[in-house]
Simulated scan of single mutants.
Amino acid sequence: MKKAKIIFWTTTILIFLFEGVMPALTSQSEMAKEGLRHLGYPEYFGIALVVFKVLGVLALVIPQVPNRVKEWAYAGFAFDFIFASISHFAVDGLDFQGFFPLIVLAVLMISYIYYHRIQQYKNNPV
């Protein structure tokens, strides 16, 4: 159980940093705005994306948030990473920027798997 908690919190904190803290601090930079323009998205989309990312990571890291809300947060991030990869592949071709969201998706999946292992242990302690 201790190993599961360590893996869960390590991966979840990485998601928290990459998808909550970093976007909140850098979303209004010229580089971030240019990145959205480069992919063909309007500026308001970036603002909405940051708001939902911050809400999503808060849902993941606050233990009192209901399980159903956490499930939606995981799903939202999975869609975000998949569509980010598709956007980069469509605009830039096969390069690292297209694969990076898939790497973060793998980290998210590990967090999700260990979240459920912890929940299962809470419901059926051995």
Rank of each mutant, 00 (worst) to 15 (best):
K2M: 14
K3V: 14
K3S: 11
A4G: 05
K5V: 12
I6S: 05
I7F: 07
F8T: 12
F8Q: 10
L14I: 10
I15R: 06
F16Y: 09
L17A: 12
E19D: 13
G20S: 08
G20E: 09
P23G: 07
A24S: 12
T26C: 07
T26P: 02
S27A: 13
S27Y: 15
S29N: 05
S29G: 14
E30A: 07
M31R: 15
K33W: 01
E34Y: 12
G35H: 04
L36S: 04
R37P: 11
L39G: 01
L39P: 03
G40K: 01
G40N: 02
Y41F: 14
E43R: 05
G46H: 00
G46A: 03
I47H: 05
A48G: 11
L49Y: 09
L49D: 05
V51N: 00
V51A: 12
F52Q: 06
F52H: 03
K53C: 09
K53G: 03
V57F: 03
V57H: 01
V57Q: 03
L58I: 12
L58S: 08
L58F: 13
A59H: 05
A59N: 06
L60P: 09
L60V: 01
V61L: 12
V61A: 11
I62T: 13
P63N: 04
P63D: 11
Q64M: 15
P66G: 04
R68F: 15
V69G: 06
E71H: 11
A73G: 09
A73M: 05
A75N: 04
A75D: 04
A75R: 05
G76W: 01
G76H: 02
F77G: 03
A78M: 12
F79I: 09
F79G: 08
F83W: 04
S85H: 00
I86H: 00
S87I: 02
F89D: 01
F89S: 03
F89Q: 06
V91I: 14
D92E: 11
G93W: 00
G93I: 07
L94T: 14
L94N: 12
L94A: 14
D95T: 10
F96P: 11
F100Y: 15
P101T: 08
P101K: 01
P101L: 01
L102N: 07
I103G: 15
L105I: 07
A106G: 11
A106D: 04
M109R: 03
I110W: 10
I110P: 02
Y114G: 12
Y115T: 13
Y115H: 15
H116S: 11
Q119K: 12
N124C: 09
P125N: 10
V126P: 08
